[in-house]
């Protein structure tokens, strides 16, 4: 089974050859470069990669939330039978009933003067739902995230904690009863205990509603917990995509291994020996030829400098873009017990 395809047959989202470039000060920067993946109903696809690797841009490109002015997108985004990238903006607005996005900092996406119940109803107003239906949907959405409409009604966003605000943002997305939510770093700003609540909540909702999630995060432990499949991005390209076990137990791409080795795990028995590695990030404006990871890659050879590695199936079934993919288990992954 090759894992760029979703786990079951019911693919609802298909992204093909998506590229996004931004122009900044006369220069063009390719933020997303020829990215393809699909997501099935009820499935969670984790999207990991360093800051600036293009995670948010992919999410925004799917929902067409990128600024028009300095952006150029190519490729196709198909949601069921509809090609989103060619829709009129009115038709796209209607698609937001089914596709939603939530962000890392929920507070900044709220109007501070509005009541919580109005914030949660925002999507329903855009859809033109009648007031009576709005009320019942808001109540249901709030209750799905553990709030009681009667107790929170009339309160403003600043009266809630960070975790509560994130739950309100989730309620706002849920109110329109979407089939897919792009979650961009939804727990990054939360404390461990609150993070656990929000993750459990998203998992419950996913299960109860057969909701598909694209879960963007730089925290590989969180992504492991929530995802069925994982895509690893490096400088705008997918370098590896596969099931959770493929990516975490037998990562094929050297970059995936670099990421996994850097995860700060709580391990009472491990004393970390510092290594003197220094990351030199290659320029985005003047891309080098060959593999973009080669300046940081311990396995790089001549061919890596000459030819961009194509995405091909790795022995364990995941898809990988590397001339010399790994096939041995990730060091320490099997024995490393966290606690």
């Amino acid at each position: 089974m090759s894992s760029d395809i979703a786990l079951n047959d019911e693919i609802i989202l298909e992204v093909r050859n998506l590229s996004v470039s931004f122009s900044r000060g006369g220069k063009e920067m390719k933020a997303v470069d020829d990215v393809s993946f699909s997501v099935a109903a009820g499935e969670t696809l984790g999207l990991v990669g360093e800051s600036g690797s293009g995670k948010t841009t992919i999410g925004r490109a799917i929902l067409r939330l990128l600024p028009d002015a300095n952006t150029k997108s190519e490729g196709a985004v198909r949601y069921k039978k509809t090609y989103l990238n060619t829709l009129s903006s009115t038709d796209m607005r209607h698609m937001r009933d089914r596709l939603q996005m939530i962000f890392q900092d929920p507070l900044s996406s709220f109007n501070p003067r509005r009541n919580v119940e109005d914030i949660v109803a925002e999507g329903l107003v855009i859809q033109g739902k009648p007031a009576s239906e709005r009320k019942s949907r808001v109540e249901a959405a709030l209750s799905a995230v553990g709030f009681d409409l009667a107790t929170v009604a009339g309160r403003k966003p600043h009266q809630f904690s960070g975790g509560q605000c994130q739950r309100i943002a989730i309620a706002r997305s849920l109110a329109v009863e979407p089939e897919l939510i792009v979650c961009d770093e939804p727990v990054a700003s939360l404390d461990v205990s609150v993070q656990a609540q929000v993750i459990n909540l998203l998992q419950d909702i996913r299960e109860n509603r057969n909701l598909a999630l694209i879960f963007i995060s730089h925290d590989l432990a969180v992504v492991k917990n929530v995802s069925d499949r994982v895509a690893v991005l490096y400088m705008g390209r997918i370098v590896e995509i596969g099931t959770g076990p493929q990516i975490y137990e037998r990562p094929a791409h050297p970059y995936t291994r670099t990421l996994l080795e850097a995860v700060p795990v709580v391990d009472a028995t491990r004393k970390i020996e510092p290594d003197g590695k220094r990351t030199v990030m290659p320029s985005r404006n003047r891309p080098q030829g060959g593999c973009a990871f080669r300046s940081r890659c311990p396995r790089a050879t001549q061919i890596c400098a000459e030819t961009v590695p194509a995405v091909t199936p790795a022995p364990r079934g995941q898809m990988v873009a590397c001339h010399h993919p790994h096939d041995e288990p990730a060091p320490g992954m099997a024995v490393r017990t966290q606690r």
């Binding site: 205990s193 656990a196 590989l220 432990a221 969180v222 492991k224 917990n225 069925d228 966290q338």
Partner: peptide, 21 residues
């Protein structure tokens, strides 16, 4: 202990329920 168990661990399978506080 509660704090440690609330953290997602790299050796747990996907969709493991996290302990909350």
């Amino acid at each position: 202990e509660a704090l440690l168990s609330a953290m997602p661990a790299m050796d747990q399978p996907a969709h493991t329920r996290l302990r909350t506080i």
